[in-house]
């Protein structure tokens, strides 16, 4: 049983800005929330490799192939940092992976959109990684120590992801008419799904209050989204691209860019599994996992054999 005293002491630690470490006392609900949010984050990094991985062999030059390969490898790393942070709460890696391959664990719906052209990959770097940076920079101050540290490590790598994307976006935007068209089309398709990455509006986000109270996250969805929009509007202008929102306008009083209504029906539809790529993504991940089973087993068998011969020798 959790006593009120324990809960109050815990809250006092949070309010004092202390980090919670794996063996510290914590409310069961806090533990659940970290596992839920952190593993969703981890799954997203792993699934996030697919839309871009799809273009590694078709990137336009050796340089761009190398860049994309390095970026996608980083995303695998991000997934692993996060899984290892979540495992400190006593949940097993295989359990987490099982929940998303065969259960109903969620990952960011942005990765359920297809990448139709190479420009999509560039725009993903610019917008999707750009949005991820806004989120993760804040999560690096999350109250759960291992999760905060994993995010800090991630942040050190993300600026390369965004910069390589924005650089390519700028190149395409000043390229041939066909290239301009291609990159504008990518922006048109990814703009709204990127804004959805920050999650539902605050008025519609049931987990938010608890997450904020415990400083698992430090800003509301709408605050982070606004922060992102304010930045991207300037970046789009700088390369002469149009964001597909006729309601986008600067509010002199607030100093923020106001934007139109996000198509939430589409968001919930994709969350429910009806996006263009939902089935395909899970299918690819399952196949990769299952095709790799023999490697995992072989490595384990090899380790056992080595242990045995070492024991014999001694």
């Amino acid at each position: 049983m959790e006593t009120q005293q324990q809960l109050d002491d815990f809250q006092a630690r949070i309010d004092a800005g202390e980090k919670i470490e794996p063996k510290d006392w914590m409310p069961e609900r806090y533990r659940e929330q970290i596992i839920r949010m952190g593993s969703q984050h981890a799954h997203s990094e792993i699934v996030g490799m697919l839309p871009e991985g799809n273009w590694i062999s078709r990137a336009p030059s050796l340089k761009r192939k190398l860049v994309l390969l390095a970026k996608v490898q980083d995303e695998a790393g991000h997934g692993l940092y996060l899984y290892s942070a979540i495992e400190t709460l006593g949940v097993r890696r295989s359990e987490l992976i099982d929940q998303y391959l065969y259960g109903n664990a969620k990952y960011s719906s942005i990765f359920n959109y297809p990448t139709l052209s190479y420009a999509d990959v560039c725009v993903i770097g610019w917008l999707v990684d750009g949005a991820a940076i806004v989120n993760q920079t804040k999560l690096a101050h999350s109250s759960y120590g291992p999760y905060a540290r994993a995010n800090l490590r991630i942040c050190k790598e993300e600026s390369f992801h965004k910069k390589q994307g924005y650089e390519m976006v700028a190149k395409l935007a000043e390229g041939t008419p066909a290239q301009r068209k291609m990159v504008q089309s990518a922006v048109d398709r990814f703009w709204w799904p990127t804004l959805m990455m920050f999650g539902p509006n605050d008025s519609n986000s049931p987990n938010s209050a608890e997450l904020l109270k415990w400083q698992v996250k430090l800003n509301t969805n709408d605050e982070l989204r606004q922060h992102f929009v304010d930045r991207v509007v300037m970046e789009a202008e700088a390369v002469g691209l149009t964001l597909p929102d006729p309601d986008l306008k600067f509010n002199e009083e607030t100093g923020h860019w106001e934007f139109g209504e996000i198509p939430w029906d589409e968001f919930w539809d994709v969350v429910k599994g009806n996006g263009v790529m939902n089935r395909e993504r899970i299918k690819s991940r399952r196949k990769a996992h299952e095709d790799g089973a023999w490697v995992r087993e072989a490595a384990q068998a090899y380790a056992r054999k080595k242990n045995l011969s070492r024991e014999k020798a001694s």
Partner: peptide, 20 residues
């Protein structure tokens, strides 16, 4: 301390640690 990882044996752990 950097973090943790899963590996079948020590050698595999070192290689994974380098990559991760």
């Amino acid at each position: 301390h950097a973090g943790s990882l899963h590996a079948s044996d020590a050698e595999n752990a070192l290689q994974n640690a380098r990559d991760v």
